[in-house]
Nucleic acid binder design. Structure first.
Length: 470
DNA sequence: CCTGGAGTTGTCCTA
DNA sequence: TTAGGACAACTCCAG
């Protein structure tokens, strides 16, 4: 019997639930293997910067484990095939991993589990990625929630120390002599995000930084994209270089430390939004490719590739939208407020199918989390659970004025508008020829005219939604 | 079963 | 300039 620990979205050896069990169950003299599988298939949606972040996180694990005398084996392949091979190579294997909640992961794990169990082997899964199990939070009648606020209330009522206490991983208990090593993995040289760095060291640095200077003003600062008001932990949470429990514990500690905890509560709520969308994806797996509210599958979206391309490239003529898309393209990340603005613009102003936008974000975002991305897009498109009511359509100009008043964010990413005066930065096409020349940007040449007129398309989209409701 | 309050993140018009 | 209410109406959910 060979014991295998399969690292997935839990790239840390601290506070790791399945790892705790693995260490406990592995007896001296028992052979074991520490494993990561670089799965070809799932890389379809992996942008370069995202893979680069993953590599950095893996490299750090390799070095850390090496120092302790262990090999971290990174194997390229499709996980079901890898396990078939490991099974035929070692005979019975006992695999430990943390549970993943996306429908396609559940399917894959079930296939692996079924195969292994016919061979007398096993795959054991533990809960680690979320604070709560999908079935733990239900309404009193046992059915799943589909509205966030009551869901979050229930979470806060039920949460106990068991949900957030640290897992005790004493990796030193594993004897290096029993450690099996297999392949040597070659990293490719990939484009790196100028904003993010993978690995637990960096994840912990960010958490500490945010704890010290950010958590206590989160509510007031988080909506301004030119301010460093958010935690920047999303990618670390996704790859598990930092655990959700560490985040929750940090929030609790801060809450006790300060008088007014409103600011901290808002961040805790964001952690619960993450839980909420995992919960929705688990209980309503059809949201993967359909609207949560089924009647909206009747909407006849626009599939205009030309305007979609302009949106992707940040050439819509709406500075705040273009700034967001260019940030995404350059940095593999976009500020949350701007994610809403760009998503709302694609679905409401261009009336393009939210699935196109969801897919584009999925390809570009380093922090891509399937459930949150899908939930966010459906929220913006008004097709989701607990969605934005369809008649609440963001006005990109107002959003821009409110959240980037001086255009600091816009100027950073839409460089051709650098010298446009504050007053015109949100709608530069309002400048006359002379003003344009004065600030070095000719609209229609150096920066595009708006591809649509917000006011008129807004009426159209309202009618389309109205006709569905009636 | 009924009831009634509430629902992430808005916009726009009016006074 | 700013504050308040309409927008449209449904469904969720707790009591």
């Amino acid at each position: 019997m060979v014991k295998i620990f399969w690292f997935r979205k839990d790239l840390r050896i601290f506070d790791n639930r399945a790892l705790e069990h693995f260490i406990e169950d592995t007896k001296p003299g028992e052979k074991f293997l520490l494993l990561y599988i670089k799965n070809r298939n799932s890389f379809k949606y992996f942008g370069e910067m995202r893979v680069s972040f993953l590599y950095e996180s893996l490299k750090e694990m390799v070095i850390l484990l090496k120092e302790k005398g262990y090999n971290f084996n990174i194997i390229k392949g499709d996980s079901p095939i890898v396990f078939k091979e490991l099974q035929s190579k070692y005979g019975n294997i006992s695999v430990y991993a943390n549970r993943q909640t996306e429908p396609y992961s559940i399917e894959r794990d079930k296939a692996i589990m079924d195969f292994l169990s016919t061979k007398g082997s096993s795959l054991k899964l533990y809960s680690d990625t979320t604070l709560f199990e999908p079935d733990e939070i239900t309404k009193d009648d046992g059915n799943p929630y589909s509205v966030f606020t009551p869901f979050s209330r229930k979470c806060l009522n039920l949460i106990s120390e068991n949900h957030y206490k640290s897992s005790n991983c004493k990796i030193e208990k594993l004897s290096p002599e029993d450690n099996i090593s297999s392949e040597i993995f070659k990293y490719e040289d990939l484009k790196k995000s100028p904003l993010f760095c993978g690995g637990r060291t960096e994840g912990l640095r960010l958490l500490k930084e945010f704890y010290k200077n950010g958590l206590d003003k989160y509510k007031s600062q988080r909506d301004f994209p030119s301010v460093k008001g958010t935690s920047f932990l999303s990618a670390h949470l996704h790859f598990g270089t930092v655990s959700i429990r560490e985040c929750y514990r940090a929030a609790l500690k801060k809450q006790k430390e300060i008088k007014n905890d409103e600011e901290v509560k808002v961040w805790m709520n964001e952690l619960l939004w993450r839980e909420f969308y995992y919960h929705i994806t688990h209980h309503f797996p059809y949201v993967i490719n359909s609207s949560f509210k089924k009647q909206y599958d009747k909407l006849e979206w626009n599939y205009d590739e030309k305007s979609f391309k302009k949106w992707c490239e940040g050439k819509t003529g709406y500075p705040i939208v273009d700034a967001g898309m260019r940030q995404l393209n350059e940095e593999g990340w976009m500020h949350n407020r701007v994610r809403m603005i760009t998503a709302m613009f694609l679905t409401k102003d261009l009336f393009i199918d939210w699935r196109w936008g969801e897919k584009y974000f999925a390809e570009k975002l380093i922090d891509l989390d399937f459930a949150s991305n899908n939930g966010g897009w459906q929220w913006s498109a008004s097709t989701g659970c607990d969605a934005q009511p369809y008649f609440r359509i963001f006005n990109p100009y107002l959003q821009s004025q409110r959240f980037d008043a001086k255009g600091t964010y816009i100027r950073k990413y839409v460089k051709e508008l650098k010298n446009v005066p504050d007053k015109c930065i949100h709608k530069p096409d309002d400048m006359n020829k002379e003003q344009q020349v004065n600030c070095g940007v000719v609209i229609g040449k150096d920066y595009p005219f708006p591809i649509v007129e917000h006011k008129s398309v807004k009426e159209n989209v309202l009618n389309k939604f109205k006709s569905i409701t009636k």
